[in-house]
Design a binder for these strands. Sequence first.
DNA 1: AATCTTTATGTAATCGATTACATTTTTACA
DNA 2: TGTAAAAATGTAATCGATTACATAAAGATT
Lengths: 328, 328
Amino acid sequence: MNKKSITVKEVAARAGVSTATISRVLNGDPKVRPETAEKVQKVIKESGYRMNQTARSLKTSRTHSVGIVAPEFKNDFFMSIVTGIEETLKNRGYSVILCSSQESTAEEKERLKLLKEKNVDGTIIIPGSSSGKHFRLMGETPVVLVDRLVRDFRSDAVLSDNFQGSYDAVRSAVDKGAARFGFLGGDMDLTSARERYDGFMQACGDTGTAIDRNLILFGDYHEDSGYELMKKLMESPEPPGYIFISNYFMHLGAARYLLEAGRDFPGLHIISFDDLPLASFFPCISIIIAQPMVAIGSKAAELLLDRIKGDKGEVQTVRLPTSMRLLE
Amino acid sequence: MNKKSITVKEVAARAGVSTATISRVLNGDPKVRPETAEKVQKVIKESGYRMNQTARSLKTSRTHSVGIVAPEFKNDFFMSIVTGIEETLKNRGYSVILCSSQESTAEEKERLKLLKEKNVDGTIIIPGSSSGKHFRLMGETPVVLVDRLVRDFRSDAVLSDNFQGSYDAVRSAVDKGAARFGFLGGDMDLTSARERYDGFMQACGDTGTAIDRNLILFGDYHEDSGYELMKKLMESPEPPGYIFISNYFMHLGAARYLLEAGRDFPGLHIISFDDLPLASFFPCISIIIAQPMVAIGSKAAELLLDRIKGDKGEVQTVRLPTSMRLLE
DNA sequence: AATCTTTATGTAATCGATTACATTTTTACA
DNA sequence: TGTAAAAATGTAATCGATTACATAAAGATT
């Protein structure tokens, strides 16, 4: 009853050839005679044979699977990246082992160990912190970082051009009359947070826009901190007319504050990162800096595949341009 | 240079025992002498040995990985479920191979074949359609369905109590004075869509609430259809005061319509499924029927683990209760 | 102390593919 | 047609663990 799956041995017997030939056909080796190949293919089709990838992996030490470590799953930003990764990989015959790190370094380490044991051919990490020393335990297995860079670890990386994105948006706002900015940033330990801050500051500098240090606040990229900081800003004696928010989730929190406050905020303009669900409908939204998340994922997957294929070139950090969406 | 990883053989040599003993220690076999075990452990620690899971899998035909097939990743609803699954599985030493099906039956089939080849120990599917004939190709490998049931395939399943959730919410609305309902449903081929519709109708029936067939519209659970149907409803000659929306993404689309329309809708009350980001801030939201998504995922993972362990009991469909969140 | 259990350890086959090397078949060309 | 070269196929070892079975060591019993 329990149809134990057929093996090469069985196929070989049925086709009247050796297992080596079966393997050759399976791997498209050009030096099998067409007639033989055809005969084998027929047996394969008829018997419904499917190769045991585990056995193949043992022999070739290639699993055709790559690990992804992301801080969390319930996050459209990360998952858009994962979408790009998976799409690119599956077209090349790779599958994806997804792990959550809960933004904890210890968790991250644990997951990586597991991936190493499972012999993934490579790993894409969305780092949960700015430290990457523990990534070294992947040894020779290629690693590509995404969205954030880390210290103590060198590898390929793909992220968006945060500096330019911020810079352009702020200049554009100044062109439209912005003169007094509030800024809600993320943990400055994270590259993206720092780069966005730098872009913001540089644009202010270049346009001669004064900076009120009291309006420059830092959170942690999470919704609640966006809420709190927005509240703080809006309840300050003289709230700014323009507020730059460094990521979607803080924007979400900020929007929640504005909605909860329930009153209008005339003259308030918000500039924020990430074009995610409803962002363009959040109160007072004026400019959205959109990151090409799916493209970031695809690019990361491509870099990884190159490394897996054996590319030994210099590691590179790829920055993809953001785009600006003007509202109002 | 390239530290090829150590194998049991090497460990055995260093510890002066046989590979069998190493394996026994590795697997916690109680009949190795404590001193021996200790000695082996020491060598393992010192040599940094890590077992090759591929080799183990080949011999044991257990991969300690399970496949998940979901229609898409950029979807907080699905990903909350996946979060629950992953959390439960990782605590039991299993990892997750994530595949997207793009809601296409063909894609679904393709992914399942791949998972079969990779020898996953089991699979959790969030079906993309109401047909499940192709799930049969998993053969003996256990399958658990989540969120939706399908025809032509019997297996364990976990989903929320859609009927009860709808029913209770509608009754509650009627208690607060609702008398004329609009209804935005999903594809009636999907169990969840049908059950929610049934719950809605039953509650209307039981409370003697009249039903205007012109206000009962069906979409496809996607944002755009929510937008279109909401528009249709609100632009009809006499829009209803209460609108029941069958899922989050249609709710999102509906909210987008209301926000875009830009005017107030006094006396409009919305009842909708799924307590996802900002849902409680969408215009006119009155009752949210929250599904226990993470719990659904965990439960599915537990059922699957039981099957993997060899549980041969009758297949079961587990329904988890929803909860009601009253706003306004 | 001799013998019988019980317990610990070792030997070697095995899982299902791949592949270096050996062998056979086909082709090419004198 | 015979033989060298090229092409196709086969044989058997191998990847790194597990495990049935065999054997050795320790403990129990009288």
